[in-house]
Design a protein around this nucleic acid. Structure first.
Lengths: 355, 355
DNA sequence: GTGAAAGCGCTAACAT
DNA sequence: ATGTTAGCGCTTTCAC
C-alpha cells in the first residue's frame, strides 16, 4: 500500500494525499475527510525512507551509551548502574514526544565510529551520548557532527573548543563538585580526618571532577590527603575489590571512604564484610549515583543521588529544541545532586567507643 | 556527499560504487581499492533511506517492551525488573550482529498501534515483543504482521491460531511450570503445608502459567489451596503492599509465600518487616526472576532465576535467522529456569523452635 | 484547491 | 568488468 493507491481510491492525486498526511492548511475539510477515510480503512502509513529521502526528518534520536566495561566482560550486563534508569527515561520521554529511539552501546574507542556512521547514514536526526571517555575518536566526532547532539558527562570547555562551526551541542553534567563537597563536609563534621577516595576513571569527566574536587575540599578543610588511602577502582567492581583487599593487607585503613560510584562503594563494603571489618562501625563508606540497589543493601548506602531521570528528560527536551532550531549553539546544564544519608556512615571509631 | 560524487572522484560509475559498497564479487581488486580509497577519504556512508527505498533491509530491529506500570506511574522507571538486563542484552547482541535496535515502551493496549506503525512505516526489518498482555490490539497485530517477530512471554498455541498466513514468528518462554514446581517442592519438602501465592496478572501468559501451575503442583502434593493465602499483586509493588497488609490485618498467615516476581516478593518482605514478622523465621518467601536486587537485599531472596540474557540472545539470533529466512513459520523455545536458594526460606515455625 | 512532474540517493536489471 | 537507466515512495515546487 502506497500513497498513490490511496490517492486513486480517494479520487485525488498523490500530492493531495501528501498534503493531508502533513496537515497542510490548504486542503478543505471535505477532501481531508475523504482521504483520511481511505487511509484508515487500509491502515496506511507512509514509508519513512521515502519520506526522509524527500527531505523530512527521521523522527529518531540515537542514544549512545558508553560501557565502563570491556567488550568481553559478562558483568557489564547487570553492572552498569545508570544503564537501566537512564535508558528507560530517554525512551519514555522520547516516545512521549513522538520520537523513536535507536540505542547503541559503545565498548571501546573504536566503536565510536558507529556514532558517526549512524549520523552519516542519516538514520537519526540527533544524538545523546553518555559516559564517554576523552579520546581522539570522540573528539573527532564532536568536531565533525553538525546534527544536534547532547552530551552527558563531558567537559563543556573542551567541547566549546572543538565543536563544529555549525554544530549544535548541549552539555549536561551533574553538579559533582557540590556532591563531593557534601560528602567530605559530612564526614569531616562527624569527626573524620582519615578520609580516602575510591577513584573512578579520570579519562571520564565525572571521574576527573570528583577526584579533583575531593582534593580541593580536603585542602579547604586543611586535611592532608594520604596517598595510601586513595585507590583506583575505575568505576568497576573487580578493580575495587583488588584495591581494597590490598589496602586491608597493608593494614592502614582510613576511617572513611568516598567511592566515586555506588558499584565501587558496594564492592568495598562487601570486601570489608568478608574481612570482619564493620561498616559503618569500623569504617564509613559513601557511594555516588544512588542506584536502585543502594537503598536496599545492608547497610543501606549513604550516597549522592544523581537525578538520572531528570537528566534524561532534559536531554530529550534539548534534542527536541535543537532539532527545531530554537536554541543557541552551545548550551550547558548543571543538574543538582543531593547527599542521601542512610546507614553506611557514622562517627569514627563507633565500635571502640561502644566497647 | 553521495555515491555519485564518490563515483566521479574515483573515475567510475555509481553502479560500481554500489557494487563495492555491497561487496559484489564481480569487481576487480584494483577497482575496489580505488573506490574504497575515495570512500574512506571522504568518510562516505550510504544514505540508509535511499538504500531501503531501493529494496535493501533497514538492518534495524524493533524492541517493544510492555510496562507493567501505567503511563502515569513514576515508579515504572526503576521498578521494571527485567527492563535493564533485557534491553542491555538485546542491544548488546543485536549490535554485535550488526543490527541497530529501536526501542519502544508500550504502556497500554492503545500504544500497540505503534508497533504496527513502526512496521508499516518500514522502520524495522523485524521485531521483538516482551511482556504483552493478551488483548485484541496485540492479537490484531500478530495476525497482520508479515515481518519476522519474536514474542517473549506469550501463549504459543494462541499464536499458532492467529498468526498471519505468511508470518514468521518465534515464541520464547521461560519454563515456568518447572520453576513453580521447584518452588512448591522446595517448600513442601521442608515441611510447609500452608503455602500462599502472590499472583501476577493473569492477562499475561507468565502470570497465568505460574498461577495455574501453582494450583496443579499443590494438587499434586495433595495440599488444598486456601483462598485467603492467595492474593493479587499484579506484578507490582503497591498492589502487593496493600494485599499483604490486608492479609496481616485479617490475621491468617500462611507459613510460606511464593511471589510471581521479585518485586512483589520484596514488597511483601518489606511489609512483613514493618509489622515485626520475620522472614524466614515467621514466614518463608520465594521470589521469581532473580533480578539484580534479589541477591543483595536482607535477607537475600530465594528466587527462580530467569535467564534474561540468554533469552535476549536467543531472540536476536531468531530474528536474524528469520530475516535470512532460514527457519520455519513458527518456532518455540522453552528456556530453562533454576531455583536459587538463598536466605528467605526456612522450615516453618523456625522462630518458635528457637525459643 | 488541486494536479503534474521533478528529484531525494540508492540498487539492480540490462546492455555493452 | 563496467556503465546506463529505470525505479523505490514520498514531498514539493510550479502551473492551473
Amino acid at each position: 500500500m502506497k500513497s498513490e493507491e490511496i490517492a486513486r481510491l480517494a479520487g485525488v492525486s498523490r500530492s493531495t494525499v501528501s498534503r493531508v498526511l502533513n496537515n497542510y492548511s490548504n486542503v478543505p475539510e471535505k477532501t481531508r475527510e475523504k482521504v483520511m477515510k481511505v487511509i484508515s480503512e487500509y491502515d496506511f502509513e507512509p514509508n519513512i525512507s521515502a519520506r526522509v529521502l524527500a527531505g523530512k526528518g527521521t523522527d529518531t534520536i540515537g542514544l549512545f551509551l558508553f560501557s565502563v566495561y570491556g567488550k568481553r566482560n559478562p558483568l557489564r550486563v547487570y553492572g552498569n548502574s545508570y544503564f537501566g534508569p537512564f535508558v528507560e527515561a530517554v525512551v519514555d520521554t522520547g516516545n512521549y514526544k513522538g520520537y523513536y529511539v535507536l540505542i547503541h552501546t559503545i565498548y571501546d574507542p573504536h566503536d565510536c565510529r558507529r556514532i558517526q556512521q549512524t549520523f552519516l547514514q542519516k538514520r537519526i536526526d540527533a544524538g545523546i551520548i553518555i559516559g564517554t571517555e576523552r579520546n581522539e575518536e570522540i573528539r573527532s566526532i564532536i568536531s565533525k557532527i553538525n546534527n544536534p547532539l547532547v552530551i552527558v558527562d563531558y567537559d563543556p570547555d573542551e567541547i566549546k573548543q572543538i565543536m563544529a562551526p555549525d554544530g549544535k551541542i548541549t552539555v549536561i553534567n551533574p553538579d559533582d563538585r557540590k556532591g563531593i563537597d557534601e560528602c567530605v563536609d559530612e564526614l569531616v563534621s562527624s569527626g573524620h580526618k582519615e578520609i580516602g577516595l575510591i577513584e573512578g576513571r579520570d579519562t571520564t569527566y565525572s571521574g576527573f571532577v570528583r577526584k579533583d574536587e575531593f582534593r580541593k575540599r580536603m585542602e579547604f578543610h586543611g586535611i592532608p590527603i594520604k596517598k595510601e588511602y586513595c585507590v583506583k577502582g575505575d568505576f568497576v567492581k573487580s578493580k575495587t575489590e583488588n584495591a581494597i583487599t590490598k589496602m586491608i593487607k597493608i593494614g592502614k585503613l582510613p576511617t572513611a571512604l568516598i567511592a566515586c560510584n555506588d558499584e565501587m562503594a558496594l564492592a568495598a563494603v562487601e570486601v570489608f564484610k568478608r574481612h570482619g571489618i564493620k561498616v559503618p562501625e569500623d569504617i564509613s563508606v559513601i557511594g555516588y549515583d544512588d542506584s536502585p540497589i543502594a537503598s536496599v543493601v545492608d547497610p543501606k548506602l549513604t550516597t549522592v543521588k544523581i537525578p538520572f531521570y531528570r537528566i534524561a528528560q532534559k536531554a530529550v527536551v534539548a534534542v527536541s529544541d535543537m532539532v527545531k532550531d530554537a536554541t543557541t549553539r552551545l548550551t550547558e546544564y548543571m543538574m543538582d545532586v543531593e547527599l542521601i544519608r542512610r546507614e553506611s556512615c557514622a562517627e569514627p571509631f563507633t565500635r571502640r567507643r561502644q566497647v
